[in-house]
Design a protein around this nucleic acid. Structure first.
Lengths: 226, 226
DNA sequence: TCAAAAGTGTTTGCTATACACCCATGA
DNA sequence: TCATGGGTGTATAGCAAACACTTTTGA
């Protein structure tokens, strides 16, 4: 049994999809969540998770649903990135894609393959495979936005687990910026934001002095600073 | 003769529109370009210029075309703002709207009514009429983005005509920020950007000392500063 | 006792702000 | 000559960057 076209309009309508660029930090590297496509077009290529918007579904809900269905990833910080709509970006029909980006804690990942995606994997931003559609372009866009937001928001905290040390936080910033930071200035700046508080606990991690652990005062909230 | 539905799909497709928030400065006030709708829904209401994306048309091209068709305004600085897609935001069918915002020189306006719009008019941001759809929401979004960008880009130069005085530029900034600025500090900061140069000419304008006129070194270019 | 990361203040340069008077013109 | 906006410099405070040593632990 094959589906017959059943939804008709006086004027042609484009299809609308969402795609999501999910960032995490793993092993001090910035990585992106990708799926391998099981169907045409670009069958076998790596692509961003995403898919068609249901006719009564909010755009952000669509992004979250596709992400969960295709990769099992949930509970991320999501923000709209940009809408890509160049004619010809999808060979099947006119497809306009509303791109989102997301940040997640590397300890929260519950990845699984699904019916839509043959495989799910993380790739370092610096070593991406060839990608389907204009997804490489989207990732470039998302990466620039992320690094820009580092400077004037508390977005980087979204990468952190429940409790963390200031050293761990600094290593996240260093991975994102691609450069080393001065420890004293970094700690001064972070504590001045008044967004983290000590848990009172210590973390023992190797043969050296244990580190105080901190938690976010208001997890999930991303503030614009300055 | 009425049109019969002629474009059919296996799955339902939303309609896609663009809407444009055009800002200008007139009489030291920030104003927005609006049209009065000639057709349902919201017939007779004020709305942003905009309309349906042609099936092979780029999104930005659509925004520029609708703007020109409905208002006669051309040659503006355009930037994508956000995509609004809540189900129910249009009572006819599911409509996803890619919103743009634009800045234009108040001396460049060639407004005219057209078949789609009964009337075209400027409204001060501080005194908008009731608006169709979620357009008031879009304008709030655009206004916040504009004022945020003032701080870290040269976007305000897009409001200026070919030649202008530093006093005129300062009045534009003051209208946008809603507060007075120190003249000396303002001129120091603007000149330090190295984006304007004196034309060598003077502008006589009332019974006081004439002002030097300036031009943009690179008109159209908007730079991120800091 | 050694290696390794945690933790801690001060100095310095730069940038943003506050602030007041003379100039050139037309009425 | 008066009213009006044009044009100019300096002093100060606050913020960002540079910089080195002691502490605590496990091996």
């Amino acid at each position: 049994m094959s589906l017959q076209p059943a939804y008709c309009y006086v004027y042609p309508h484009p299809a609308v999809t969402t795609d999501v660029v999910v960032f995490t930090i793993r092993g001090q590297r910035l990585e992106i969540l990708m799926i391998r496509r099981r169907s045409e077009p670009f069958r076998g290529s790596w692509a961003l998770p995403g898919g068609f918007v249901d006719i009564d579904e909010d755009l952000e809900a669509c992004a979250l649903r596709e992400l969960a269905e295709e990769t099992g990833v949930r509970g991320v910080y999501l923000e709209q990135l940009y809408t890509f709509g160049a004619p010809g970006r999808d060979p099947r029909e006119r497809v306009i894609s509303v791109a989102y980006y997301a940040l997640t804690r590397s300890d929260r990942l519950q990845m699984r393959a699904s019916s839509d995606a043959a495989e799910v994997a993380w790739f370092p931003v610096s070593a991406l495979p060839p990608l389907a559609f204009d997804h490489a372009h989207m990732i470039g866009f998302a990466h620039r936005r992320l690094t820009a937001k580092l400077d004037y928001s508390t977005i980087a905290f979204q990468f952190m687990p429940e409790t963390f040390t200031l050293g761990e936080l600094q290593r996240v910033y260093e991975a994102l910026l691609g450069e080393g930071l001065d420890k004293r200035n970094f700690r001064k700046r972070i504590l001045a934001l008044d967004r983290v508080e000590p848990t009172g606990g210590l973390r023992r991690n190797g043969s050296h002095r244990p580190a105080r652990t901190y938690r976010l005062k208001d997890p999930g909230r991303v503030e614009i600073i300055r």
